[in-house]
Design a protein around this nucleic acid. Structure first.
Lengths: 118, 118
DNA sequence: CTCATTCATTGACAAACGTCGATCTATGTG
DNA sequence: CACATAGATCGACGTTTGTCAATGAATGAG
């Protein structure tokens, strides 16, 4: 579009062109993927339970507490691990999960929200 | 199922019954809704732009920066406002948005992640 | 080996989501 | 009044999501 050929605007311009995106597509997608992992009530409960526990927690303890079918819990745990929020550890037949306590802070940092949190 | 009638387990129990949900359904859903608002790359960019600006930003400035159709930008802004993350202000024909800088901190607090952030 | 247990994976289904074109409302100009 | 502009709302579309039953893989007991 040729700006010079435009008729004079009947409404004055409200703001300057200002700065660019200030965040690459990759950064935005990476940050969104972490928050997407926390965007489900069940996964919020999981993260909260793990945040309250100083030791890794067994899946056999999470499943009854969440009152969901076992494949559903496994599905949510995988999403949290893929997002980098949880760490998995196998002990014999059992699988234990614990929180990676730096991950959320990293996402909030990219958002430029450090000052707004805590 | 009658527990007393079960045969002895061939695998020992891994953990105690332990604590309950420790987070109500309403708290989990409320927290998840805030993170859901941040679970899209476009909305991450919007929040980042607003976080970098000390003054409210006009929609007419957001739309070209995001390279998306105007109804799409309006849709994302509504989701962020509904989540309590953004505040809307009408100035004549234009709509300005700014960040509610306490909202994310509140969500992270419910998660019990204060210590892990910042 | 056989069997039981824990957990992950697959497949299917309904619900929710992101995107955009078309339309509507509200504000300001003349 | 008529007209132009900014932005919200509506409908439709393809994609993604949460859930579960069924199945598969891995570990341990006997």
């Amino acid at each position: 579009m040729n700006v010079d050929a435009l008729p004079l605007l009947s409404v004055p311009a409200c703001c300057q062109p200002l700065d660019g995106p200030s965040l690459t597509d990759a950064e935005a997608e990476g940050t969104a993927s972490v928050f997407k992992a926390l965007s489900d009530p069940t996964r919020v409960k999981i993260v909260n339970m793990l945040a309250r526990s100083s030791e890794p927690v067994c899946v056999c303890e999470l499943t009854p507490a969440l009152r969901l079918a076992q494949p559903t819990v496994s599905h949510h745990l995988k999403k949290l691990v893929d997002a980098g929020l949880l760490l998995r550890e196998q002990r014999g037949v059992w699988a234990f999960y614990r929180l990676d306590r730096d991950a959320v802070g990293r996402a909030a940092g990219i958002l430029d929200l450090e000052g707004a949190i805590a």
